[in-house]
Simulated assay, not measured.
Amino acid sequence: MAVSLHHLVVDAHDLLGLARFWCRVLDWKVLSEREREVVIGPDEFASTGICFMPVEDPKHIKNRLHFDLAPDDQGAEVERILALGARRVDIGQGDEAGWVVLADPEGNEFCVLRPKTSLIAFRDA
Protein backbone atom coordinates (compact mmCIF):
# COMPACT_ATOMS: atom_id res chain seq x y z
CA MET A 1 0.00 0.00 0.00
CA ALA A 2 1.48 3.38 -1.02
CA VAL A 3 1.04 6.57 0.97
CA SER A 4 2.04 10.17 0.35
CA LEU A 5 1.90 13.41 2.29
CA HIS A 6 -1.28 15.19 1.17
CA HIS A 7 -1.74 18.28 3.39
CA LEU A 8 0.01 19.89 6.27
CA VAL A 9 -2.79 21.18 8.49
CA VAL A 10 -2.45 24.49 10.34
CA ASP A 11 -4.91 25.52 13.05
CA ALA A 12 -5.99 29.14 12.60
CA HIS A 13 -8.35 31.78 13.90
CA ASP A 14 -8.51 33.67 10.60
CA LEU A 15 -8.35 30.86 8.04
CA LEU A 16 -8.45 32.99 4.91
CA GLY A 17 -6.16 35.68 6.32
CA LEU A 18 -3.49 33.17 7.30
CA ALA A 19 -3.92 31.29 4.02
CA ARG A 20 -3.39 34.50 2.07
CA PHE A 21 -0.24 35.29 4.09
CA TRP A 22 1.24 31.88 3.25
CA CYS A 23 0.17 32.22 -0.41
CA ARG A 24 2.23 35.42 -0.62
CA VAL A 25 5.20 33.80 1.16
CA LEU A 26 5.21 30.67 -1.03
CA ASP A 27 3.83 32.19 -4.25
CA TRP A 28 0.93 29.73 -4.04
CA LYS A 29 -2.80 30.31 -4.44
CA VAL A 30 -6.00 29.54 -2.58
CA LEU A 31 -7.33 26.34 -4.12
CA SER A 32 -10.44 25.82 -1.99
CA GLU A 33 -12.24 28.10 0.44
CA ARG A 34 -14.92 26.68 2.71
CA GLU A 35 -16.31 27.78 6.05
CA ARG A 36 -14.22 25.27 8.01
CA GLU A 37 -11.18 24.84 5.74
CA VAL A 38 -9.05 26.75 3.31
CA VAL A 39 -6.59 24.83 1.12
CA ILE A 40 -3.59 26.39 -0.61
CA GLY A 41 -0.98 25.01 -2.96
CA PRO A 42 0.99 25.71 -6.11
CA ASP A 43 -1.85 24.17 -8.13
CA GLU A 44 -4.74 21.74 -7.66
CA PHE A 45 -2.67 18.72 -8.71
CA ALA A 46 0.48 19.40 -6.66
CA SER A 47 1.66 16.57 -4.44
CA THR A 48 1.30 18.49 -1.16
CA GLY A 49 -0.68 21.50 0.06
CA ILE A 50 -1.48 23.34 3.27
CA CYS A 51 -4.95 23.19 4.81
CA PHE A 52 -6.05 25.81 7.36
CA MET A 53 -8.64 24.61 9.89
CA PRO A 54 -10.47 26.63 12.56
CA VAL A 55 -9.42 26.56 16.19
CA GLU A 56 -10.94 28.38 19.16
CA ASP A 57 -8.12 28.31 21.70
CA PRO A 58 -5.13 30.66 21.56
CA LYS A 59 -1.60 29.46 20.86
CA HIS A 60 0.41 29.19 24.10
CA ILE A 61 3.69 27.41 23.39
CA LYS A 62 6.26 26.94 20.63
CA ASN A 63 5.04 24.85 17.70
CA ARG A 64 5.97 21.18 17.74
CA LEU A 65 6.00 21.22 13.93
CA HIS A 66 7.08 24.14 11.78
CA PHE A 67 7.98 25.05 8.21
CA ASP A 68 11.60 25.47 7.07
CA LEU A 69 11.95 27.70 4.01
CA ALA A 70 15.10 27.46 1.89
CA PRO A 71 15.54 30.58 -0.27
CA ASP A 72 18.39 31.52 -2.60
CA ASP A 73 19.08 34.66 -0.51
CA GLN A 74 18.27 34.31 3.20
CA GLY A 75 18.58 38.01 4.07
CA ALA A 76 16.43 39.24 1.21
CA GLU A 77 13.80 36.58 1.91
CA VAL A 78 13.63 37.44 5.61
CA GLU A 79 13.07 41.10 4.75
CA ARG A 80 10.40 40.22 2.16
CA ILE A 81 8.50 38.01 4.60
CA LEU A 82 8.74 40.59 7.40
CA ALA A 83 7.17 43.11 5.01
CA LEU A 84 4.30 40.64 4.44
CA GLY A 85 3.44 40.66 8.16
CA ALA A 86 5.76 38.15 9.85
CA ARG A 87 7.79 39.07 12.92
CA ARG A 88 11.11 37.91 14.33
CA VAL A 89 10.97 35.59 17.34
CA ASP A 90 13.58 34.23 19.71
CA ILE A 91 13.13 30.59 20.66
CA GLY A 92 16.69 30.25 21.93
CA GLN A 93 18.32 29.75 18.53
CA GLY A 94 21.31 32.00 19.32
CA ASP A 95 23.25 34.35 17.06
CA GLU A 96 25.27 31.61 15.32
CA ALA A 97 22.27 29.68 13.97
CA GLY A 98 22.11 29.14 10.21
CA TRP A 99 18.43 30.02 10.22
CA VAL A 100 16.22 32.96 11.16
CA VAL A 101 13.10 32.25 13.20
CA LEU A 102 9.99 34.21 12.26
CA ALA A 103 6.33 33.94 13.24
CA ASP A 104 3.35 34.28 10.93
CA PRO A 105 0.50 36.69 11.80
CA GLU A 106 -1.02 34.13 14.22
CA GLY A 107 2.28 33.42 15.99
CA ASN A 108 3.22 30.13 14.30
CA GLU A 109 7.01 29.90 14.19
CA PHE A 110 8.87 29.02 11.00
CA CYS A 111 12.49 29.20 9.88
CA VAL A 112 14.21 30.81 6.93
CA LEU A 113 17.34 28.77 6.29
CA ARG A 114 20.60 29.52 4.60
CA PRO A 115 20.53 28.28 0.99
CA LYS A 116 20.59 24.49 0.70
CA THR A 117 21.49 22.09 -2.11
CA SER A 118 19.62 19.07 -0.72
CA LEU A 119 17.41 18.05 2.19
CA ILE A 120 20.53 17.56 4.32
CA ALA A 121 23.29 19.83 2.97
CA PHE A 122 23.82 23.60 3.09
CA ARG A 123 25.14 25.26 -0.03
CA ASP A 124 28.58 26.84 0.37
CA ALA A 125 28.14 30.57 0.40
Rank of each mutant, 00 (worst) to 15 (best):
E106L: 03
W22K: 02
P71S: 00
P71M: 09
G107E: 02
D90V: 04
D90F: 02
L15C: 05
P58H: 00
R20Y: 00
A76E: 13
C23H: 04
N63W: 00
H60M: 09
I50C: 05
F45K: 06
V89D: 12
I120R: 10
L84S: 06
P105N: 12
H6C: 05
L102I: 11
D95I: 04
S118H: 04
H6P: 00
G75P: 09
D72N: 12
I81F: 05
L119G: 10
S32T: 00
L102M: 09
S47T: 04
D68Y: 13
A103F: 01
N108I: 04
I61R: 11
S32G: 01
D14M: 04
E96Q: 15
E44N: 01
K29L: 00
A2L: 11
D95P: 11
K62H: 11
N63F: 01
M53N: 12
G94Y: 11
V38K: 07
D43G: 08
V3E: 08
P54Y: 05
V30S: 03
V100I: 12
I61D: 06
V55H: 07
D104L: 11
K29Y: 00
H60D: 08
K116P: 02
P42H: 09
F45G: 01
G85F: 02
E35I: 01
V101K: 08
L18K: 01
E79D: 15
F110G: 04
A76D: 07
D73I: 04
A83I: 06
A46G: 11
E106R: 03
G94H: 08
H6F: 12
I61E: 13
M53V: 12
W28T: 05
P54M: 07
D57H: 06
V3P: 04
R123Y: 11
F110K: 01
E56A: 10
H6R: 13
A83H: 06
A46K: 00
R88N: 11
V38F: 04
L119F: 09
D73F: 02
I40C: 02
L15P: 06
V10P: 01
H13L: 12
T117A: 06
D95L: 08
H66Y: 08
D43S: 11
F67L: 15
D90N: 09
D95R: 14
E56S: 12
V55A: 14
A70F: 02
V30R: 05
T48W: 04
A19H: 03
L18F: 06
E109R: 08
C51N: 08
T117F: 02
P105A: 10
K59D: 02
R123S: 12
Q74R: 14
G98M: 13
E35V: 10
P42W: 02
D95W: 05
W28K: 03
V112R: 07
L5Y: 00
Q74L: 07
I81D: 05
M53P: 05
A19Q: 07
D14Q: 14
F122A: 10
E35H: 08
G98E: 14
E56P: 03
F67M: 15
D72R: 09
D95F: 09
